[in-house]
Amino acid sequence: MPDEAAPASMPALRRIGPRLPVGDWLGFLLALAGVLWLVARGAEGLGYNWQWYRVPVFLLSPQGGPGPLVYGLLVTLKLTALSGLGALAAGLLTVLIRLSGSLAGRALVRAYVEAMRNTPLLIQLLFLYFVLGPVLGMDAMTSAVLGLSLFEGAYVSEILRAGVTSIDSGQWDAARSLGMSRLASYRLVVLPQAVRRVLPPLASQSVSLVKDTSLASVIAIGELTLRGSAIVSETFLSFEIWFTVAALYWLVTTTLSILAARLERRLAYPT
């Protein structure tokens, strides 16, 4: 009887297998064609005079060096890197204090998290630069990095807290049985496991950070958005420049997502 049932199950296994990639590519191409058709119809109705041939000079100067948009992209990457490190530091410190036994410390970091998450980043940057900047001697770049670090750090702390609290209590017991201090338990046992679990939301937060750097333009940071705005004001190439700026942001965020996915697979299946 088992020998007779086995052949009957084979067609079912083939039916539930992965679809052929040809169908997926066909669906993608059809969706892309639909989007391009909508864009073309909208542009035709708008009556806009597209001048894409003027865009390359803003990416690569005639002398062969980077153009203003590339310079702005480099500033955006610098802001992202510095603010990302600051956000990780602020988030880790916040979650350690929040999970400690200090009532005053927990109340303080809770107030910080709520203040950062419930007020606009734009207002925070303006406050830091125009109010605290002159008092503390901070320039625009320092104010932008500090503001982005504190703002993103509040979200990072919640992500890390969720990861730490998801670790089974037996891991803490095992660390204590080996004579580890609380700090050593965090560093050697809890955080390595928590990072594996929170890597996807951290990657999503890093993508959000890249886009949030555009708000630094309000305090005269020459990042990608400010450079694009200046070019539009001079050339009136509104759609061409903003579409190019959006494509550069998309390139950076997609690269971050791919790197995070590879890191996630490496942590899940270490070689």
Rank of each mutant, 00 (worst) to 15 (best):
residue 254 T to M: 12
residue 232 V to E: 12
residue 223 E to Q: 09
residue 251 L to P: 07
residue 242 W to Y: 15
residue 239 F to I: 06
residue 234 E to F: 11
residue 219 I to E: 05
residue 246 A to D: 06
residue 240 E to P: 08
residue 229 S to Q: 15
residue 253 T to V: 15
residue 222 G to Y: 08
residue 220 A to V: 13
residue 260 A to V: 02
residue 243 F to M: 14
residue 226 L to P: 02
residue 257 S to W: 00
residue 252 V to K: 05
residue 225 T to F: 14
residue 247 A to G: 11
residue 234 E to A: 14
residue 229 S to M: 08
residue 227 R to E: 15
residue 231 I to G: 07
residue 217 S to E: 13
residue 235 T to G: 00
residue 261 A to Y: 02
residue 233 S to V: 03
residue 239 F to M: 07
residue 242 W to D: 00
residue 255 T to R: 05
residue 218 V to S: 04
residue 222 G to F: 04
residue 227 R to I: 02
residue 228 G to W: 10
residue 240 E to F: 04
residue 261 A to T: 11
residue 217 S to F: 12
residue 257 S to Q: 15
residue 244 T to I: 04
residue 222 G to V: 09
residue 228 G to Q: 05
residue 227 R to Q: 15
residue 233 S to N: 12
residue 245 V to A: 05
residue 261 A to G: 13
residue 250 W to D: 04
residue 224 L to Y: 07
residue 235 T to F: 04
residue 249 Y to E: 09
residue 250 W to K: 02
residue 225 T to I: 09
residue 255 T to K: 01
residue 248 L to G: 02
residue 236 F to D: 09
residue 260 A to R: 09
residue 226 L to S: 01
residue 229 S to H: 08
residue 217 S to Q: 12
residue 223 E to Y: 07
residue 255 T to I: 12
residue 229 S to R: 14
residue 259 L to M: 14
residue 227 R to W: 01
residue 235 T to M: 02
residue 235 T to P: 05
residue 220 A to R: 11
residue 258 I to E: 00
residue 220 A to G: 09
residue 234 E to N: 08
residue 217 S to Y: 12
residue 246 A to K: 00
residue 252 V to W: 05
residue 233 S to G: 11
residue 251 L to N: 04
residue 237 L to T: 01
residue 259 L to R: 06
residue 252 V to C: 03
residue 236 F to R: 10
residue 239 F to Y: 13
residue 241 I to W: 09
residue 255 T to S: 14
residue 255 T to N: 08
residue 250 W to F: 15
residue 217 S to L: 11
residue 243 F to P: 00
residue 244 T to P: 03
residue 244 T to Y: 03
residue 224 L to D: 08
residue 219 I to W: 10
residue 247 A to I: 09
residue 251 L to Y: 03
residue 249 Y to H: 09
residue 258 I to L: 14
residue 233 S to Y: 12
residue 219 I to L: 02
residue 237 L to N: 05
residue 227 R to Y: 00
residue 225 T to E: 11
residue 233 S to F: 11
residue 224 L to N: 04
residue 239 F to K: 00
residue 225 T to P: 03
residue 230 A to T: 10
residue 254 T to G: 07
residue 245 V to Q: 01
residue 250 W to H: 02
residue 258 I to M: 08
residue 229 S to E: 14
residue 234 E to W: 07
residue 225 T to M: 15
residue 223 E to P: 10
residue 230 A to S: 13
residue 258 I to A: 13
residue 240 E to C: 01
residue 261 A to F: 04
